[in-house]
Nucleic acid binder design. Structure first.
Lengths: 206, 206, 206, 206
DNA sequence: AATGAATGAGTGTTCATTCAT
DNA sequence: CATGAATGAACACTCATTCAT
């Protein structure tokens, strides 16, 4: 038998889990506030009750937290997205479901780091996070499938996918910045823009 | 009179101007290649015949070149944009003109730094550069004007502006990444998406 | 009587001893492989079934294991050396016995850590380990004794001792690096060099 | 023409040279006192009037100073050694010349770092510095040549070279540690040991 | 005793910025 | 004005050691 250990099984494991989450949460905020490059490991652990050393007990590098964050986001969002494509009977309902799912996701999580406004400085960076890339592929696949089945015209698939995501991201960001957060309205705007363009957009009172 | 003498800038003035432009050009490239954070002042002046010290004669900090770049971009693009709104007779021609102007601008300048892919890492950064903000305001004003004049339905102006710009930026980036660079096709895609949504998008052969 | 009971060490005692030895063995290897400075405590305990914490139950610091290792080596080698001086009837037989004993010792233990090649870097370090010092004193005493008894000329004792040890160490290292390890030949070389210099060295075929 | 610069040609260059040498001197001492691994860049520059940053203006890494030191030592010693082999008429005069040259070299330079006693800690490290290796090859070549010409018996060349260098190093270290430093006596000891072994060693009074 | 997560000073190195020349 | 060496705070990361369990 191996040595008897102080195995109080729950406590230790729980702390580890909590610490890991604390680091991820802090990193989310910090990356969101100042961008990945500008953020330092110390910035992250400063928002934590841990030490620099502890950081490296949980992640091998700054890069790794970033990937964990991305994986995490992608991992949780992709199935939601996928479920939509199963449920959807026509193209419109798929788009609406997907956009809606994304906005709900945004609203529920405070996925601050996905939007990341950085007041003092600013640099245009295409945001090809692993997460975004994965979602892109997912959306692309579904749209491609829809087109193949004749439910939508044969258009430039990459352009369509990219545009749809860009609009959804942009409107998502702005939705989150408004008070109150109106998922319904934002969803409607995006869906109508994609499906019918300007003429079909919801009217608002002046 | 002495006025004339000063209209022809002295050699000194000219050199200063050239150096400033050399730094800006180098910075544009470098920021484009590796992103603002990763780029070092030395990276910039290395592409120049100047010295580190000289850099600080022209700009007080790395930040300042970035801002100058942004201002510069905006300053050159806004009049182009503005000219469109004067020329345009209806909404479609305005949109087409504007998008077209932006894509020409992209293609002519190798405005790499506005797209800035950074190989090893990647981080979502919304790009609220002064330039983008200025362009946003410009576009917003024109669209507002168009709506006011009854040429377009009364829709959510911020959302519309943001969406239009997002799509234009996204498709612009992808247009630049394709070979050959097809301004025509990209413009058509964006205009049709905004004006008529998916059904009106140009068909492509499978 | 109770004496007997304590002569057979308890299980507890045995485990402690084993752990201590396990650490020493691992440390020997690790110090041998990468040098003292480069070796980390974790490198040592990794080659053990123990934990970092346990390490500090047995040794107060990394330094302390090093000293224990040195003491240990010296403690085991000195009696062997001493036995030679008793057995020896003349100077040559003493020298031959001592050198032979050292080379056997080298070959039997894989006393890698006493030779310690460090792959990437390299730095001259004289090796005044406690062990070496102790052996030095032992050899010095015997040589002094031999000279006093008129069996060898009155020469500079420190120089002679130092030279003899240096040659033995150097040839020992090289003997261990050759395949097959030839204790006989190495011993003969050292003994003849010390006793008769170059002219008396064993010939080899071209 | 290029821009006029503040070229006061001597001053600047001189300072650079001095700083480089200051770093090398400091590094020699520090590596000597505590070994390469244990020595930190900060330890080195502390013995200097420079800053951490300046260190990296002169050397790309800690490794690089080490190599510069080794190269430097080897570069200066090898020609001296080589000159001996030309001057020498027989084997004894070569050996004596070479050993003598090494001891003069030791005495003239305070080549502290080549001897490197480290009081607090200690770790046997074979000292295969580039310098030592180069010298080894040099000595080996000459000895080989001597043997080929029949001036010395056909013995194990590697063993002979290694032994000779080991003895010279060891006695050199001890010579330097004694007061007064007696190059004559040390040389004589080494030469006689190598050429005739113990019986031919110089006698000393009890 | 044993465990292994936590600690934080310390490491080599970079880089924006300053300043003597 | 130009130059480029000097500066030193800051960075990502390591590791000997401690300590709650």
């Amino acid at each position: 038998m191996s040595q008897v250990a102080y195995l109080t099984p729950g406590k230790r494991e729980q702390t580890k889990l909590n610490n890991r989450l604390a680091i991820l949460d802090a990193a989310r905020e910090v990356f969101g506030d100042m961008g990945f490059e500008a953020a330092t490991v110390r910035d992250i652990i400063r928002r934590t009750s841990l030490s620099v050393g502890a950081f490296y007990n949980y992640f091998r590098s700054k890069e790794e937290v970033y990937e964990a964050l991305a994986d995490d986001g992608a991992r949780r969002f992709r199935p939601i997205l996928h479920a939509q494509s199963a449920k959807a009977t026509d193209f419109e309902s798929y788009i609406r479901g997907a956009v809606r799912a994304y906005f709900d996701f945004l609203a529920s999580e405070n996925e601050a780091w996905m939007r990341a406004p950085r007041p003092p400085e600013a640099m245009p960076q295409t945001r090809n996070t692993p997460e975004i890339l994965a979602v892109f592929e997912e959306v692309r696949a579904v749209l491609g499938n829809v087109i193949e089945r004749g439910l939508a015209p044969k258009v430039d698939l990459d352009f369509l996918t990219a545009s749809s995501i860009a609009v959804a991201r942009e409107i998502g960001d702005r939705m989150m910045a408004r008070r109150p957060v109106d998922v319904e309205a934002a969803t409607e705007f995006v869906v109508r823009l994609i499906l019918g363009g300007l003429p079909s957009l919801p009217r608002v009172e002046p």
